[in-house]
Simulated scan of single mutants.
Amino acid sequence: MKILISGGGTGGHIYPALALIKEIKKQDPNALFLYIGTETGLEKKIVEKEGIPFKSIHITGFKRKLSFENVKTILRFLKGVQDSKKMIKSFQPDIVIGTGGFVCGPVVYAAAKLKVPTIIHEQNSVPGLTNKFLSKYVDNVAICFQEATPFFPKEKVSLTGNPRATEVVQHVPVKKAELGLNPNKKTVMIVGGSRGARPINDACVKALQSFKKKDYQVLYITGEVHYDKVVEEVEKVGNPPNVIIKPFLHNMPDYLKNIDLIVARAGATTLSEITALGVPSILIPSPYVTNNHQEKNARALEQNGAAIVIVEPELSGEVLLHEIDGIIGNTVKWNDMSSKSLELGIPDASSRLYRLIKKLIKK
């Protein structure tokens, strides 16, 4: 089986692709892969590090406002389609899969025009421009949120979930003691992403002294960029013994199984991981993402009772503390949110996608 995958721009498009590749290799050790991305994108470094054959095309995304740059983008798209067709004809894949980002546009479109079976994977509750465009041409649209269904041709949609959910369920958890945490206490993780988020850090620092009086403990991930500044602020007020502060944790899924509540952004990958494990969440969506999709993702969990959403303008140390206490200190509410989170989770996402791939190849 030969599989061509394209996805790039952010880790949210790349890591699901890598998780899917791992699942396919497990099911079919003889499977061959080719990954097409951009030369300057995050995907090149990450994919090549995994030892997966990588080729690139030159493409940029459309501007949402009228711009001469969009004319250039159209020309790059047409050139990208030509280049992609050459790569597809050379590799001769059985199927082409797009996991998001503008690089998928010319690659998946070229495959559809060459009559190669195609799938796009939409991680968010509201799709971006590229996947909306491609949905007219592909054979199937794999989604992670039921809320995404109305944006695509209904007959093409399959609810598969995010392959990262499967990875997190299969991970062996790191013991609390290895992080200096008490294994007998409930644990709240506060994290603003790999780079951190200043508004979340500000609120957390202001809540520090109140955390000191609580029965639960806090694993606080500042983000590497903000760590020194946070430590400077913490030194002024003191670091409570029940708050462990780290700049970053590699392999975050290793830690999630020991978390009782997470305070985080609302990226699609994060939500797929926490729902697969049934972790209740307080979500503080980033307002700086395209189409405000993080808040829309977060609202999908909130509407189903799995999360509480705090938008940045309403975030403060007092508000954060109130919401944490309201979940951790209320067993009935915690149990309800955990079960609602599990209901949304799709822990077998990788195998669902694999079955869909095999089904399309056999057609």
Rank of each mutant, 00 (worst) to 15 (best):
N70K: 14
V71G: 14
K72D: 08
T73N: 11
T73C: 15
I74E: 15
I74H: 12
L75C: 13
R76W: 07
R76P: 01
R76D: 10
L78C: 10
G80I: 02
V81A: 08
Q82I: 12
D83E: 13
S84K: 01
K85H: 08
K85N: 05
K85R: 12
K86E: 14
M87Y: 15
M87N: 07
I88M: 07
I88Y: 13
K89R: 15
F91S: 04
F91N: 02
D94P: 02
I95N: 09
V96Q: 07
G100F: 07
G100I: 04
G101Q: 09
F102Q: 03
F102P: 00
V103G: 00
V103L: 08
V103F: 05
P106S: 07
Y109W: 13
A111E: 01
A112G: 01
K113Y: 10
L114V: 03
L114P: 05
K115M: 08
V116K: 03
T118G: 05
I119E: 03
I119S: 01
I119N: 03
I120L: 08
I120G: 00
H121L: 08
H121T: 01
E122L: 08
E122F: 06
Q123V: 06
N124C: 04
S125E: 09
G128M: 03
L129A: 14
L129Y: 04
T130N: 01
N131Y: 02
F133I: 10
L134Q: 04
K136H: 14
Y137K: 05
V138Y: 11
D139F: 11
D139N: 14
D139S: 08
N140G: 05
N140H: 13
V141I: 10
I143D: 04
F145A: 05
A148I: 05
T149R: 15
P150E: 13
F152P: 11
E155Y: 03
K156R: 05
V157G: 11
V157K: 04
G161A: 02
N162Y: 07
P163D: 02
R164W: 10
T166P: 06
Q170A: 15
Q170F: 13
K176D: 01
A177G: 05
E178L: 10
L179S: 01
G180K: 13
L181K: 09
L181D: 01
K185M: 15
K185N: 07
I190F: 09
